[in-house]
Design a binder for these strands. Sequence first.
DNA 1: CAATCGTCCTGCGGGC
DNA 2: TGCCCGCAGGACGATT
Length: 274
Amino acid sequence: MPELPEVETIRRQLSRKIIGKTIKSVKVRYSKVVRKTSASAFRRFLVGQKIKNLGRHGKLLFIRLANSKTIVIHLKLAGRLLIEKKDTAPRKLTEVVFGFKNFQMFYDDLRRFGWMKIISTSDEAGFLEKEKLGPDFFSRGMNLKKFKEILGKRGKSKIKPTLMDQSLIAGIGNIYAQEACFTAGLHPERKISTLSKGEFSKLYNALARVMKRAVGLHGASTDAYIDAFGKKGSFVPLLKVYGREGEPCLRCKIKLKKQILAGRGTVWCSGCQK
DNA sequence: CAATCGTCCTGCGGGC
DNA sequence: TGCCCGCAGGACGATT
């Protein structure tokens, strides 16, 4: 599922392909994907507009247009933005087709959970506030001190579900929260208030390392995720716990356990994570 | 305040 | 072979 590294991969790939290009046509094939705005208004805002640049905040992608509007896209579990040849036919789960002069961009969504909204580019900050998103994990102001300060507000909560709380820090999802807990040697259910200074530092560094590495490898294709060119990311072989329940821990060889935490599957090593 | 549950939706895997 | 069932999963709103 697309988390910060996967969305960043798509942002970088699309940037190279669509910046400076003009949207010639827009077909909305699944009207529920466009939120707040009608499909016809959506088209009206986009057709004829040149793409200025692309941004990302947490798992949200921003496609900024010349007319001071921005398309905000959340891929949720299985959304895909794909560069396709001019003559490629839309598929069953293609929800939006953006036509450019020499190619197309499809929005496919295998779970139909994702959405798009149109906002004013000048109101991006207000939008993030309305969506209740905390700072992006890779934003400029983020550092160990800030990380500790933000998580410290949820002292009584368990670390793993709290890392996934987008209102605190945006971008961390189920895969990277589990991987970071393993790398830092922390049990996913540890209460934040019990973390020592050293443990906070290990957790912060583990998150930064694992997500940077994942961006470099174009993300982790664990479920439906593929990049903007239809290719799988290469991070899966580097996953140490996600999807490995029942298999031996790569560090201590004992069987990895799985439990549901805040409704999400969570794999951890009872030997290495305390 | 913290945690859980139902909801949205589809594909896929297990069971028979 | 094929059908039915149940589950996963990000985020939100409602409830305990």
